[in-house]
Design a protein around this nucleic acid. Structure first.
Lengths: 345, 345
DNA sequence: TCTCGTCAGTGAATCGCTTCACAGGCAGAA
DNA sequence: TTCTGCCTGTGAAGCGATTCACTGACGAGA
């Protein structure tokens, strides 16, 4: 415990301390930092030595205030604990790294208030742009953000506005695929464990479910038994499945809004002594990496997660400066059938 | 496409625009923002209306430059895709939210260079403090950071220095527990799928393995067959297990450095036609939420993840300003036995 | 009536950096 | 020798906020 210095107020060393230490002017230090080629080698080394010696770290706020720009991108995702989103984040980081940008992550936990908080935090920090999976149905605040000069790309959500770029997967198609599969197995009553309608993915996956049922000549009002859970994770799934099982005539198959929910649902089914795939078919969404390794391997809708993030970051970076119009990219999902979805008995 | 304004250069509205618009002085706007009670209700409303109308968002860089401080905390974790760390992040956020702080997340992917980059990024942005799970064995750079006035708490890693606070779980004890369990089942040759020795957790879990074996009168050089994988995830585990199976005399049990690795290892074992728990016992580490739901439920070492994050954030916030010395907190892990670890045949 | 304290509101100084117009020195050309 | 132009390096201006010493106005007490 030699130096407990700077506990109360850190007297951060500034560029002028370095200048004094190196015996040069303030502007020269800045030049060494930003355009080293303009400084003679001798002076440059002197300055670098001083920087080293004083352990100088430039003040990002000051730099940014003056220079205006910054190489940081913010991402506000629905749930950082969901492997789907962490995989997307990977894709984003990979692309950003190519251009030497860095990613700051935040999780809205499906709460619009939290989302707004992070959006504002990032904006105040002057990030170069943001990738957002909106927690609410509305994107007006994001359009406003763009208007204020912050580049925004919607992530895992098709843009409702032509002014906003987006990268998404066709959720209606994905859900329809899943439910068609269940119908093909003979199921006529499908339980849908869904999230709140404020989340677009939930709305779309419901729409896909309805579409598949209707196509098959079934009446969604009868064939689809929907429960809404408040959070799209294992706890939610468990609660949802329990609710469905308590029904007089429970469904014979479950379509869950995502794999985490399916995980919880399966837990509940087992707790009720049911065998998954036999007593109840279960289909998830996202095809997270452990889906194939579960007690009963989970049938799920696979999305090109990594690419999703990669392309989103690409759009964000690509539009910078250039006067390119907004673009909407949409990927197609793919159904991966495994043991959790067995035929109706 | 009405206003494509500000694509090249966003003319951000500033506090003086607001002042002009509201017909007050610059300082008054600032007062409305920071000490509203000092402003008369009439003026306050006028200013707030102007802020609303201009969609004014204060420039965080400028504010921070002047005010010096900020309510953001950065966390640099080893791997954001690991449920263990996302759960820890949750704990951190929960605690930070209590004091209205916000968390910015970054993943070093076990790469010290990336870690350094994020550390610097956060420092330049003047975060209040940082929570770090170091990717390398060294913490000198973190001590230096503290010296420069940035509060640092080590996460999931016991501090080697009395000057640095830390929150960790006793990894040696955890690993010893796991291996003792395997020995108790009759296993005499244990495969250790471990990460690089630059990561402290890996070193400790190895030490715990050695300790348990030695205690049981076994020679670690014979009883422990170690393979080192480069990344602590499913891919790594798969590679590690494949390597062990290629051995002339493979081990009869596998202790994996974490659950993700175990997941991959189990995949490899199955690919080789083995039945987990019977042909090969497997034990993981972290007890991630899906461990109990796997094809063969995974025996694992449970850590108080959420609390880890919570306490770490608490230490960070708690020390702020106050001249409290550094604290090292250490939790004890717990073994959760499931089907993946069967007796030696 | 005069003084004093209080309350609102003002605006200059300041944070640390980048940028830019400019100065000095030096070499080559005229 | 003088001029020109390049190369280094200088230091003031300014980014947008906060802060603080200060001004005016107003009411109360003397």
């Amino acid at each position: 415990m030699t130096t407990t210095s700077g506990r109360k107020r850190a007297p951060r060393t500034s560029i002028s301390d370095v200048a004094r230490h190196a015996g040069v002017s303030l502007g020269t230090v800045s030049n060494v930092l930003n355009r080293p080629e303009r400084v003679s080698p001798v002076t440059r080394d002197k300055v670098l030595a001083a920087i080293e010696e004083l352990a100088f770290v430039p003040n990002g706020s000051a730099r940014q205030l003056r220079a205006g720009t910054i190489t940081t991108v913010g991402a506000v995702l629905l749930d950082i604990a969901n492997p789907f989103f962490t995989e997307v984040a990977r894709g984003i980081e990979d692309r950003l790294a190519e251009d030497d940008y860095t990613l700051m992550l935040a999780s809205s936990d499906e709460d619009p208030t939290r989302e707004a908080r992070y959006l504002r935090l990032f904006e105040e920090h002057g990030v170069h742009g943001m990738l957002v999976t909106p927690a609410g149905p509305d994107v007006d605040h994001l359009l406003a953000l763009r208007e204020r000069g912050v580049e925004v790309v919607l992530l895992d959500r098709t843009s409702p506005s032509p002014d906003l770029s987006s990268v998404a997967v066709d959720d209606v198609a994905g859900a329809a695929m899943a439910v068609r599969h269940l119908i093909g197995l003979g199921h006529r009553r499908v339980g849908l464990i869904n999230g709140p309608t404020t989340i677009k993915q939930c709305v779309d996956r419901r729409a896909g479910t309805v579409r598949a049922l209707t196509e098959a000549g079934l009446d969604p009002d009868e064939a689809m038994i929907e429960v809404t859970v408040s959070s799209l994770n294992a706890e939610g799934g468990e609660a949802g499945a329990t609710e469905l099982l308590a029904l007089g005539e429970p469904p014979t198959a479950l379509f869950c809004v995502n794999d985490l929910t399916a995980l919880g649902a399966m837990q509940a089914l087992r707790a009720h002594g049911m065998t998954i795939g036999q007593d109840m078919a279960v289909v998830g969404y996202d095809d997270v990496n452990f889906a194939s390794m579960l007690m009963t391997p989970l049938t799920s809708v696979r999305q090109p997660t990594r690419r999703l993030g990669h392309v989103a970051a690409d759009l964000l970076l690509g539009r910078a400066g250039k006067d390119v119009g907004a673009q909407q990219v949409e990927f197609q999902p793919e159904l991966v059938v495994r043991a959790s979805s067995g035929p109706h008995r």
